[in-house]
Write a protein that binds this DNA or RNA. Structure first.
Lengths: 234, 234
DNA sequence: CAGGAAACATGCGTGCACGCAAGTTTGCGT
DNA sequence: ACGCAAACTTGCGTGCACGCATGTTTCCTG
């Protein structure tokens, strides 16, 4: 029983770039990938994350354990990927879709907030599970690095060829900022912080919601975006 | 990808704060850590990185293999640590030592360039070895994340308590930029780039020296530093 | 200067990550 | 339509990462 490849409606709506028709090979690969991450998440939810071995996931997806490792480098990656999926690509797409008039910084910030706010019921359940194991938390945080490549592309489009280099740095900074926001957000479970209500002069940030945290983390980067944009369209 | 190198050594907030006399325990720990990373590098150079097992390193350092893993989470980390060592802390120290008058962006940039330019003979040899194995290259790049915590502290000192949050993001962005610079710098070995001399309008960056790359990568962040600084000292 | 608590080292066991060398499938040119 | 080349899957073997339980060292407090 191989991975079910249901005929996915191949709606190749022009993605700004010409998408060459995906061959059989590529479709199978994506199907296997999806089967693996779905199986990983399902099993992790059903029996608890510690009672799922790679062997189980592979079997549930109809491939060999060795093949599993051709798709995911760690056990945690597959589980996390079921939640992360293609957030990366969606963020980039949303940024690209924003009218050229708006500030790049705003476009990016809103795109990020938008994609991380779409918390479906299933995702929420998965996130709860992720917070319970540090290995999963780490894998989840590491996954944010995945937004860097697509973000680099869309930012580079706005900045022009001269800013290709800058785009890379800005995209990486955004990824870092998002990571920090998420890190602080799902910390409550594994509290180990130093300053928790020290009475001195410092005004303590009250630990807001995810959108608030994301905006707060991205705000310091806005001047860098503005400067980069200014350099191409004076 | 193996990225999780959290839980670094218990950072007694760098200089600036009084360092309590380190007890016997802490001194032994540092000695063991150093013995391990020195042994790791020496053996890797002597017999080649593929012919060094964790068991060998542990034996050379006079500890059990299990103890090795209490200090380093992967085989590559130990080798890389022999080069990286405490660059992290030194960068932070140099930034803190800069007179309060200079732009924060300049202080950070110069500190980073300074520390990565100090290429001793031994380090150069080690870097050559590191470029030969992708696993080592990855570990080396991941190690740059280590500058984040100490950098956060010194930046936060300049920005005041109100900017603690911003400091975190800026430090992470610097780490990301440095990573990008290093990534491009030691790429020549494993070339796989797409655009290598396309004649079109784009002006191709000629792949400069490390200091040039570091400055170029950090430059886009300068406006963010300036804005943060401006917000505390108008 | 006891004596107990906390940090640390170590052995053992388990599941895993990944290189390598077949065997199999897909894609493409002629 | 044929057949070759490249991509992908799989089994095997090796070294490794890390939880757990236990013995040992360091530290602190009365």
């Amino acid at each position: 029983m191989h991975a079910s490849l249901r005929a996915r409606s191949s709606v190749w709506h022009a993605d700004t770039v010409t998408t060459p028709p995906p061959g059989l090979r590529e479709r199978k690969k994506q199907a296997t990938r999806e089967a693996l991450r779905e199986a990983a998440l399902r099993l992790a939810v059903e029996r608890g994350p510690d009672h799922v071995r790679v062997e189980d996931i592979a079997e549930a997806a109809g491939v060999s354990p060795r093949t599993y490792n051709n798709y995911f480098a760690s056990r945690e990656q597959a589980i996390v990927a079921a939640v992360t999926a293609d957030r990366e690509a969606r963020i980039a797409a949303v940024v690209a879709a924003r009218p050229a008039g708006v500030r790049l910084a705003d476009a990016v910030t809103e795109a990020v907030v938008e994609q991380y706010t779409n918390t479906g019921e299933r995702e929420h359940e998965a996130l709860l599970l992720i917070t319970t194991r540090t290995a999963l938390r780490d894998a989840f945080l590491d996954a944010t690095a995945g937004i860097e490549p697509p973000l680099t592309v869309v930012i580079a489009e706005r900045l022009g060829d001269a800013g290709a280099h800058t785009a890379r740095v800005l995209a990486a900074s955004v990824a870092a900022a998002v990571r920090i926001a998420l890190e602080g957000w799902l910390r409550p479970a594994g509290n180990a912080g130093a300053a928790e209500g020290f009475g001195a002069g410092g005004l303590v940030v009250p630990s807001g919601s995810l959108p608030d945290r994301l905006r707060a983390a991205l705000a310091p980067l806005a001047p860098a975006f503005d400067a980069a944009e200014r350099r191409t369209q004076p």
